[in-house]
Amino acid sequence: MRIVLPAALLAGFAATPAMAGDMTIGIEIPRMTVAEYHPPYVAVWIAKPDETAVKTLAVWYDTKNPKGEGATWLKDMRQWWRRAGKSMTMPANGISGPTKSPGKHQIVIPAARLKDLAPGAYVLNVEAAREVGGKEVVKIPFTWNGKAAKGAAKGSSELGAVTLTIKP
């Protein structure tokens, strides 16, 4: 449900511009023909162009580990761990979830979760780290200004196509 505000009222909000829009992120986890396969740990976060982390959107890890040891390997997503993860508590409501099987996955971040994101230039980061496998980060730069935007990038090993769609 979207509430349409009159222009006069919108002007009154100018000090804290409402840039909110839904963000849809597509992540492809490639199928691998390896003897020992474990679905990758994946972290999705928004950073400033200087790599400063702004907001972690999703962390897929072994949340169902029978011994509760899934968090042991969170640090293997080295960029996310350095920039954001080490200061976070997992599991985190609305952020963490179980690992995903090979295939195409979609994350929809509702406007409400992005309402505190100031207008500006950002980079969407998607990092995948796989047990007994490799590690890869895919980045999509984007501008957050209340306008529609699309971005795409492709991984070469641990990630396939990564897409970003912003709808105002």
């Binding site: 042991t72 640090k75 080490k86």
Partner: peptide, 8 residues
């Protein structure tokens, strides 16, 4: 040197 989890 850099660890995560509850039983490091």
């Amino acid at each position: 040197t850099v660890l995560s989890g509850n039983d490091a």
